[in-house]
Design a protein around this nucleic acid. Structure first.
Lengths: 207, 207, 207, 207
DNA sequence: GATGAATGAGGTTTCATTCAT
DNA sequence: GATGAATGAAACCTCATTCAT
């Protein structure tokens, strides 16, 4: 005999069900009824927890952002103690591993990216703002590692840490994208070779 | 006095109007009536040229792919005669310049990416197939340049050309994405610094 | 320290809350939850006292009718001992004063009138029946006064007492209606002038 | 073979169908689908002509007001040339005859009255404003007749014409109401007796 | 007895698509 | 060939009512 879930648990249950459905069928093609059914609740119950389908969508997004940040945070912790190059490799591996391991969920990114341009103006602003903030957080982490490498003398090449961080992050997203279109794409192997090349670029002064 | 447009011109007129609307409001939020109105024709006329809204969407996508490939082709031609590093820089610049110069249209990518996951199964397959093909074409071009650099001895580092090509392309997409969320993001400067770092990585053997 | 209300008090508490809400927002636009909240009880509790929202509505109606009749009764008592003309004036004044003083509640009449035509067949019948009965009761009172005036010789004009009673009652309702649409409408002054004119008509034989 | 109706005719066709349905079942209990079906068109077509169900409702109201005013206008014309008392009788007869003859439509009044208090604030204001204007128009007509009667010396009693006009109009509405509840109520006979009494009151100076 | 979370039937509204002109 | 009025399936959302606690 299972107890009735708390309000918070019930809400998360719906968010997870919605995340799954949105990832699978896309936001526009997912019926609220399907989310409810996936969460094993009645259609009306969804509206007890979310004002509208849009509201649910944005909440799923926030949940997703939260998770993404936690992944980054954990990766950072796992990389502590290593030198700059080691940190970069470890950090990249963690991000890519998460993408590879949550391919099903990662699909949501595409939905969110699209929504950030095509949603209603109010929603769009919220998406855009959140994206900028999240990307900035990632960028700071990566740029700090690069700066540390330059400071320690490990990275000989003089670069703008933020620009390079942007490029590295871009590559992560872009590789994730390619793995989305091509199931045979080996994102982990590809990313591994790639980050090492970038690090090689950082370690050698241009002659 | 303007002559009546040919069937082909009329079709392109609709495609361009649709591209603009889809980029601006997103596919799902764009009404067929809006496309028709933007193309200065009647709503019913759209159906003289396209079987359905989905069909129009996919045609816009094909048109978009075609253009993208032409951009790549032209960039490649413009880079002919340079050495591998020069080609890479020129090629990257051309791609990024196109992104920066067609930001409004480039938004469509997000729609297409999302559709490749969330559209109806049939449409999804067509999207996925086309994406794989297009990415493969780009990948070949970039990988060939890298191979050429290694063959010529300019690139000292031994790498898997296809993997690195994937990473570079990923960075392009990912930087385009960041520029989409952040109007202040200077994609051309960032990409310039980044591609040079990657090239530096290629030119130096790991010690 | 307030004791727990008896079942009857609790029921009246709900009726009053419902009356207030229905008068303010209309029956259709009032949520059962709002009634409950206004009555300071839980939503489910309403259903401990009333079978359905319709049932609550009808009970409010009956309560309203009861009050209206009491008002009429009291007015009649207050007018006892006067002559026919005096009774008519006093009676009219009491009715109109009640309307003016309970403008907020009187709004309910409009809801009831509408319901008597547009509610479900069963409910409609109950409304119609109750209205006929109530109007008949009023009509009898007024007609009796008129008859008394004619009998006593005070009213010289020969009239059908019931027809005239209907007209007078109609004027009361109609004036109430006008005061509902126009906050500036002085119903008491208007009704006073009007009833005196009618009495003047009764007192003078047509020449 | 019937030609396709013009936009204006089609709109009126919907208004009439809606008026019938609203009168029969009440606004809240009428489905848009029922209106469409009564108008022999598709459900979606209703929305080609009206923004919303509320909008349709208000348009029906305006149509109703227009008709009511036309009735008053015609009645006034028909009464021209008579003396004040004759005008009053003719005018009253015309109004009451219209009510009696359009009982089916007149039911709508109850809906409109109720809406003027219970509809959404915006709609409510439009209703209220329109009612005040319409009542004022009627009031002016009746008051002018009374004034004319006093000026000509036919009406000996000194009265406030507007107050008495309000009372007479109130009686019309109130009698219509009674006839609505009671199918056996003979509104024409009752109104006839009543208006004559009122006129008697006007013709005789209070002694 | 009292409660309010859960429910889902039912209603409005949207919009891709058709087809008569 | 072009049009846009008409359509109705489909989807979101509301809210009276139930029932487990």
């Amino acid at each position: 005999m299972t107890r009735r879930p708390s309000r918070k648990e019930r809400k998360e249950q719906i968010i997870l069900a919605a995340a799954g459905m949105f990832a699978e069928k896309g936001y526009a093609n997912t019926l609220v009824a399907e989310v409810a059914s996936a969460a094993d609740i009645g259609k009306g119950t969804v509206y007890e927890y979310f004002r509208s389908k849009d509201d649910l969508f944005f909440t799923v997004f926030e949940y997703f952002v939260e998770q993404t940040r936690r992944v980054a945070e954990e990766a950072l912790v796992g990389a502590a103690g290593k030198d700059a190059a080691g940190k970069l490799v470890a950090y990249s591996r963690a991000i890519i591993a998460w993408m590879a391991g949550h391919r099903h969920i990662y699909t949501l990114s595409l939905e969110f990216w699209a929504a950030s341009v095509s949603a209603s103006p109010e929603l769009r602003d919220r998406f855009e703002g959140s994206f900028m903030e999240t990307y900035e957080a990632f960028r700071k982490i990566v740029a700090d590692i690069i700066q540390e490498g330059m400071d320690s003398g490990m990275f000989q090449k003089r670069v703008d840490p933020r620009a390079i961080a942007s490029g590295i992050m871009g590559a992560w997203d872009g590789l994730g994208l390619q793995s989305m279109f091509d199931p045979a794409f080996d994102i982990e192997k590809t990313a591994e070779a790639y980050i090492k090349l970038v690090i090689n670029g950082l370690m050698n002064e241009t002659t």
